[in-house]
Design a binder for these strands. Structure first.
Lengths: 148, 148
DNA sequence: GTATGTGCAAAGGCTTTGCACACGT
DNA sequence: ACGTGTGCAAAGCCTTTGCACATAC
């Protein structure tokens, strides 16, 4: 469920940060606003025909610095980006090593455990990221081992 | 504390998997055996003068497939690799966004929460990875915000 | 009208692949 | 001796940077 408020929130934050209203960045914001899970920079570039690849990367970097999106390192190939809710609600990911599918999930107990660690550590924790790797149910139905 | 047994365990597993005893791979195994936290492929290559970069990547790929090392996506730059204990003990990482320092930590409650999720999910979870990002105490002492 | 935003293209860094030679069995 | 393992070099991705033009204010 895309959070309708995020797009305005992000555009407002960008304006407050001194950014002008360029169209490339606005398109990136609009695309992320309607997305429920991480999107790679190249995927974003692919979907926004009129927007240059460099602008996509630049917009994502700016959005990340303002805390509006989070970069998630799902695979070794390309980084994913997804919006960060002001409320703090967020999810983590299950990544299928067979088909590459990425499935979001949320778990209060996990968040609580991470919160305890963050509080106790001699380290100022500002973000966290959990990735569970394995095989999704769709892939698990058939073969079990990689091709012989 | 390097686990002395891991090196032999890894070499044995490699032999059982049908690999011959080449020296490049053996050097990579020996280096990882004495390391307590993740090392990037390029760092390994840098430390093993006589070993070609390609051999480092190939060895790491083979070790990962055999479940002897785990690849961890710490930063967007380069992936880190660290040995995986047969016993299952492992740690996670705190990454300082300011200086890039990587600090390992372990937490039973966190493991328990992840275990519950893994069991309940309609997904065969074989590995997991937690990264906490923020600022380490050393960097936190001085400036608090990025340069104005 | 000026500074910012943008797109294109080239460069940069990590990783992978091809190929000939060396090494392990 | 045979086949695997290895090193070098080139190629392949993803990402970043430089520069000139368009755009927002």
């Amino acid at each position: 469920m895309p959070v309708a408020g995020w797009e305005d929130h992000a555009l407002g934050a960008l304006r407050e940060a001194g950014f002008r209203g360029g169209m490339a960045r606005r398109r990136v914001v609009a695309l992320l606003a309607h997305q429920d899970c991480a999107l790679t920079a190249l995927e974003i570039d692919r979907r926004l025909a009129a927007v240059g690849r460099a602008s996509v990367y630049r917009a994502l970097e700016q959005l990340e610095e303002l805390g509006l999106v989070q970069r998630v390192e799902l695979a070794g190939e390309a980084a994913g980006y997804e919006r960060l809710e002001p409320g703090g609600e967020h999810h983590h990911h299950l990544v299928c090593g067979r088909c590459g599918k990425v499935i979001p999930f949320a778990d209060p107990e996990l968040e609580r455990a991470i919160g305890s660690i963050s509080t106790g550590a001699d380290f100022d924790v500002s973000a966290h990221e959990v990735v569970l790797r394995g095989t999704c149910s769709t892939c698990g139905r058939g073969a079990q081992r990689k091709a012989a």
